[in-house]
C-alpha cells in the first residue's frame, strides 16, 4: 500500500471514530434532556426518567469498552444476540463499569482503594433494576426526589467514563 493510500485509510478511520464519538455525545445530551423532561412529569414518570439515564450509562460504557480496546466477549455471557450486536447483556453492565473504573482510577485501585469501583457497581445495578421494570411494563413508582438523585449519580458516572474515553481513545494519533 502506498504511503498516500495508507494515510487516506487512516484518515477515513479517524473520521469514522470521530463521528461515533460525536453521535455518543448527542445521544448523552438527549438522554439527560429526556430524563429531566420526564422528571418534571411527576412520580408516575420517574421510572422512565431513570430508564433514560440508565441507557446513557449503558451506551457510554459499551462504546468506551470498544474505543479503549476492552474485549466485550468476557461480558457477553455466551449470548449470541449480544455477540452479533456487539453489545452486552444488562446484567453485565455493573461488571463492565467496575472494570472501566479500575482503568480510570488505576493508581487508587493499585493502592488498595476500590471504593470508586464499588460505588460504580452499585449505581449501575440500581439503575439496571429500575430500567428492567420500565422496559417490562412495570407499574412500580419512584419518587421524583429519589429519581433525581439516581439520575445525578448516573450522570456523574457516565461523564467520568465518557470524559476519560474522549481524552484517551486516540492517544496513538497525537
Amino acid at each position: 500500500m502506498s504511503a498516500e493510500r495508507e494515510q487516506a485509510v487512516l484518515d477515513e478511520y479517524r473520521r469514522s471514530i470521530e463521528a461515533k464519538v460525536a453521535s455518543v455525545d448527542r445521544f448523552l445530551e438527549a438522554s439527560w434532556q429526556a430524563a429531566q423532561a420526564l422528571l418534571s412529569g411527576g412520580d408516575h414518570l420517574s421510572l422512565f426518567a431513570i430508564q433514560r439515564a440508565y441507557y446513557a450509562l449503558y451506551n457510554a460504557s459499551v462504546e468506551t469498552a470498544k474505543l479503549l480496546g476492552m474485549p466485550l466477549e468476557r461480558y457477553q455471557a455466551g449470548s449470541h444476540h449480544h455477540e452479533t450486536t456487539d453489545s452486552i447483556p444488562h446484567g453485565q453492565l455493573p461488571v463492565l463499569v467496575v472494570d472501566i473504573l479500575k482503568v480510570i482510577f488505576f493508581q487508587e485501585v493499585a493502592s488498595g482503594d476500590i471504593s470508586r469501583p464499588e460505588q460504580a457497581f452499585e449505581t449501575a445495578r440500581l439503575l439496571q433494576k429500575y430500567r428492567k421494570r420500565a422496559d417490562y411494563m412495570g407499574c412500580e413508582r419512584v419518587s421524583t426526589e429519589s429519581a433525581r438523585e439516581c439520575i445525578e449519580w448516573a450522570r456523574t458516572l457516565t461523564e467520568t467514563i465518557w470524559g476519560y474515553t474522549k481524552e484517551h481513545y486516540d492517544d496513538d494519533w497525537r
Partner: peptide, 26 residues
C-alpha cells in the same frame, strides 16, 4: 428495597465474585 438489594449485590460481588440480580416487583 431496590436500593438495599443493590447494596447487597455489590457486597456479594466484591466478596465472592458472584453477580446475582434480585429483580424487585411490587
Amino acid at each position: 428495597v431496590v436500593r438495599a438489594t443493590s447494596t447487597l449485590e455489590r457486597q456479594y460481588y466484591f466478596k465472592y465474585g458472584v453477580n446475582f440480580l434480585i429483580d424487585v416487583h411490587t
